[in-house]
């Protein structure tokens, strides 16, 4: 099962390498990993989606805790969260089918951010399912390029 870990780390060079090395060395599977600054410039937040059973997730968490620069780890898989991912999708789009693509964009509340002669770039944000869905809907038109950021997440409420 996929777990989402929200990991608060000191903003130091090398933290990302340490985390990545740990996953590689112990053979855990990272599904996605994002890292970025927070309201505090000394602190970054990683959102790691990792695949594994409960025993593995427990090990991942405990091993991560041993890294000196890691401050806090929350397993937010079961918690009420807001999570978002951003995707940029370049699709083949000549003038006949543009209308159809625009409709899809509309439905998913995505945006067109670039128009080329035979292609469009679409920007979509949403949870993982929504991004999967928009990807599936655009595929028949011919996806030329696609990039997804991986998930960022935050607990709901005041915690």
């Amino acid at each position: 099962m996929k777990h989402t870990l929200s990991v608060v780390v000191e903003n130091q060079p090398g933290v990302l390498t340490r985390v990545a090395t740990l996953f590689r060395r112990r053979g855990y599977n990272i599904d996605s990993l994002t890292v970025g600054r927070t309201e505090n410039p000394n602190i970054s937040r990683m959102t790691i989606v990792v695949d594994g059973d409960d025993v593995i997730i427990e090990q991942v968490t405990k091993q991560l805790h041993k890294l000196v620069e890691i401050l806090k780890i929350y397993d937010i898989t079961e918690e009420p969260t807001v999570d978002r991912e951003l995707a940029l999708v370049k699709v083949r789009a000549d003038s006949q089918i543009r209308g159809e693509i625009m409709q899809i964009v509309e439905v998913f509340r995505a945006r067109i951010v670039d128009i080329g002669r035979n292609s469009l770039i679409i920007e979509a944000t949403g949870d993982e399912n929504k991004i999967n869905a928009i990807e599936d809907s655009l595929r028949p038109f011919g996806i030329l390029e696609l990039v997804r950021t991986g998930k960022v997440a935050m607990l709901r409420g005041a915690k």
Binding site: V55, K62, Q63, H65
Partner: peptide
């Protein structure tokens, strides 16, 4: 002393 050893 190492919690990660428990159940490893």
């Amino acid at each position: 002393i190492d919690a990660a050893e428990i159940g490893k």
